[in-house]
Amino acid sequence: MNELKNLVREVPDFPKKGISFKDITTLLQNPKGLRAAVEIISDHYKSKKIDVVVGTEARGFILAPIIAFNLGAGFTPIRKPGKLPYEKISMSYALEYGTDVLEIHKDGIRKGQQVLMVDDLLATGGTMSACCKMVESLGGNILGCAFLIELTFLNGKKNLSPYDIFSVIQY
């Protein structure tokens, strides 16, 4: 994991002073790094019989379709408001500095489907918790939540305690 961790660029004071942003674009630019990260997540869930992989905007979109392909599953996006063209449900959730809203197509998940949730980063767990609630409201059965990076000091797993949480890189 140290090889992958070394491919993540840290950007100090972004998006605001005091935050050390974990920029995954440098890992994604590295063919071996990208392949390794996707394979590690895919291998962890290969035996789970995943029907659909849900990716969260925006960086979750990068990993989730590749993982879905590896697992022989479909892909469903969760997006910011106004980006999905069909009937959708939405959920508001708390951020450290306010609230945000995410949306999913009503037909993005069918009742009983086995779902893997994917995003690039687990911080406080608020975003993924909202995504899980939407998927479950549509009848999806969440088998796990996978992340490229987990900021363990923020204890985001606590907000996702009912789910199998898997992360490739921990800080």
Rank of each mutant, 00 (worst) to 15 (best):
M134D: 02
E3Y: 14
F61E: 00
D13E: 05
N6T: 03
H105I: 08
Y93L: 08
P77H: 13
G139Q: 04
T26D: 10
I50M: 08
G74T: 03
F21R: 01
L160S: 07
G126K: 11
L95T: 13
N70E: 15
K80F: 02
L143T: 10
K48S: 15
L63A: 04
L27R: 12
F61D: 00
M134I: 03
E103Q: 07
M1K: 13
T124I: 02
G112K: 01
G74Q: 06
I78T: 12
K106R: 14
L122I: 05
K88I: 04
G125H: 08
K49I: 02
I104L: 01
K133Q: 15
E57L: 02
G126D: 13
E57Q: 07
L116T: 02
Q29E: 10
G108N: 05
L7E: 07
V52R: 15
I109L: 08
M1Q: 13
A36D: 11
E57F: 01
K16R: 02
G33P: 10
I104E: 00
K48E: 15
S167K: 07
D43H: 10
D13Q: 08
I66Y: 14
L71W: 14
E57S: 03
D119Q: 00
R79T: 00
A37H: 03
A58K: 05
V54L: 09
L63S: 03
G144K: 02
R35L: 10
K32M: 09
A94K: 15
L143S: 11
F14C: 09
V11T: 03
I19V: 12
V135P: 00
D51E: 14
F75Y: 12
S161E: 12
Q29K: 12
G33F: 06
D13L: 04
I66L: 15
I62P: 02
G55S: 04
T127W: 06
T76C: 09
G98A: 03
S92F: 06
A130E: 05
V54N: 10
R59N: 14
F14E: 05
E10H: 13
F61G: 03
I40K: 14
K49E: 14
S92W: 01
E103W: 03
Y45S: 11
F147D: 06
I109Q: 05
V53L: 03
L95Q: 08
T26I: 12
V168Q: 00
K22I: 00
I24H: 13
G33E: 12
S92I: 10
R35Y: 12
L7F: 00
N155P: 02
R35M: 11
K80S: 02
G112C: 03
F147Q: 11
K157Y: 01
L102P: 06
L138G: 01
L160H: 08
S137R: 12
